[in-house]
């Protein structure tokens, strides 16, 4: 008898993604669903999708979800988690959502060490609105609102969320990953799992930044988009673990008990 080695995760609804071909959201959604299945937490998970392309995440992820106003996901997630501390609560945010309009909500949820997981999709543009400059648009990158390329004097610098947030004492775990190759996708799945596990163990705030292709707004084909992440984008946003206190938090907890 053949053993089933690949199938649709249970926590992913049987629906076709509306995302553009080559978009990283579909992959990230799937990875979250796989992790939820693996940890067997579908019944206790509540997700908070953002304003942006992923606003429709509730069409795909088969868990309870509530849409947050633009940028406010971590505030809403904080409210949910504090009310229902035994549920697993995650916010899913884009770069404009997290690093521009919602920087205060994200920063302070992290600083309070809210026991939530933040999945942060960094694709260096505003996707849903048509490819405008994002806080994470890299220098010289052309967008519809930086037609001559992002200029450091006119537009400031790309915001390095993982580096910046890892300085906060409330943060337990931060990793930056990419979803542009099978190897990187596997690394991303591990990071998401670690983030959720961190929350299940009551260890506090974690964030997984995912460099994610947006071929439509980058005006590239999907393959070139994946290459661009490797060759250009990851030079500004190097992947890696920026903070991991899970071991020491665990140790301290064991010491206390």
């Amino acid at each position: 008898m053949a053993k089933k080695v690949f199938g649709r995760p249970k926590s992913l609804k049987d629906k076709i993604f509306h995302y553009c071909p080559g978009c990283g959201h579909s992959i990230a959604h799937r990875l979250i669903a796989e992790v939820i299945d693996e940890l067997d937490i579908r019944g206790i998970t509540i997700g908070v999708p953002p304003a942006g392309c992923a606003v429709l995440a509730y069409n795909y992820l088969d868990v309870d979800m509530i849409e947050a106003p633009h940028g406010r996901g971590p505030a809403m997630a904080s409210g949910i988690k504090r009310t229902l501390p035994d549920r697993i609560v995650f916010s899913y945010q884009g770069d404009g959502d997290l690093a521009a309009i919602g920087i205060a909500e994200s920063f302070h949820a992290a600083n309070r060490g809210e026991n939530i997981s933040v999945i942060f999709i960094n694709n260096a543009v505003y996707g849903m609105t048509g490819g405008q400059m994002a806080p994470t648009t890299i220098l010289n990158q052309k967008t519809t609102t930086s037609p001559a390329g992002r200029h450091k004097i006119l537009d400031g610098y790309p915001v390095k969320v993982s580096e910046f947030f890892s300085q906060l004492e409330g943060v337990t775990y931060i990793e930056r990953c990419m979803v542009n190759s099978p190897t990187n996708i596997n690394k991303t799945r591990k990071a998401i799992k670690k983030s959720f596990q961190c929350q299940m163990d009551g260890m506090g705030f974690s964030l997984v930044e995912i460099l994610s292709p947006c071929p439509t707004n980058w005006k590239m084909n999907p393959i070139d988009s994946c290459k661009w992440i490797d060759e250009v984008m990851s030079k500004t946003f190097p992947p890696g673990v920026f903070k991991d206190n899970t071991a020491s938090v665990k140790k301290a907890a064991e010491g206390a008990s």
């Binding site: 509540i46 908070v48 509530i66 106003p69 809403m76 997630a77 904080s78 409210g79 009310t83 549920r87």
Partner: peptide, 10 residues
């Protein structure tokens, strides 16, 4: 928005 989240959570 915190209040909205908590309200949604009951």
């Amino acid at each position: 928005n915190m209040v909205a989240g908590a309200s949604a959570a009951g």
